[in-house]
């Protein structure tokens, strides 16, 4: 079992503490099919950065259990209504995540690349502004050992450009 792609529905969302394997998740969507022409995989990583308060050692991801999955499912439904997707998967982690590790994974499958690219970007833009997750920095040199990450107006703009109707 461990060697093959994990079997599951073509469309799914998951919230988990464990790391994910982007290659394996992507392979699942096209596994055993001959009609898929494009698979787009996006992985958002925890990035090491350095501020005046010193280096970031980790991010702590808090989420709203139940609503996080529900909201990710609604975002996925909206993407399916807009593009001819054959499969899509969103995996979002919670808990402590160190630089270099993946935080979020979006995979989309479609007959042609345009829809797969667009849907993946749409899913990420809406995830960032409407999926109930919050990042807190772990920065040992900072007051209280790190602060909550503030929402960016650029993320709101990125979500808004897709128009009303999502989330």
């Amino acid at each position: 079992m461990a060697d093959g792609p994990p079997a599951s529905d073509a469309f799914s969302v998951r919230v988990q503490a464990d790391a994910f394997d982007a290659t394996r998740e992507a392979a699942t969507l096209a596994h055993g099919r001959t009609d898929v022409g494009a698979v787009v995989t996006f992985t958002g990583l925890c990035r090491a950065d350095e501020t005046a308060d010193g280096p970031l050692t980790a991010l702590h991801l808090e989420h709203y259990p139940g609503m996080a999955e529900a909201e990710m499912g609604r975002i996925l439904d909206e993407a399916r209504a807009r593009w001819p997707l054959q499969g899509a998967r969103i995996v979002h982690r919670h808990g402590r995540i160190v630089p270099g590790e993946g935080i979020v994974l979006v995979v989309t499958a479609s007959p042609h690349r345009g829809a797969a690219f667009a849907a993946a970007e749409f899913l990420m833009d809406w995830l960032k502004t409407s999926a109930p997750f919050w990042k807190k920095e772990e920065r040992p040199g900072a007051p209280d050992d790190g602060a909550w990450v503030e929402a960016k107006a650029t993320d709101d703009d990125a979500a808004e450009r897709w128009g009303a109707g999502a989330a």
Partner: peptide
């Protein structure tokens, strides 16, 4: 009912 800050996931 839930109250929270603007979301910062993804």
């Amino acid at each position: 009912v839930a109250f929270f800050p603007p979301m910062t996931g993804g």
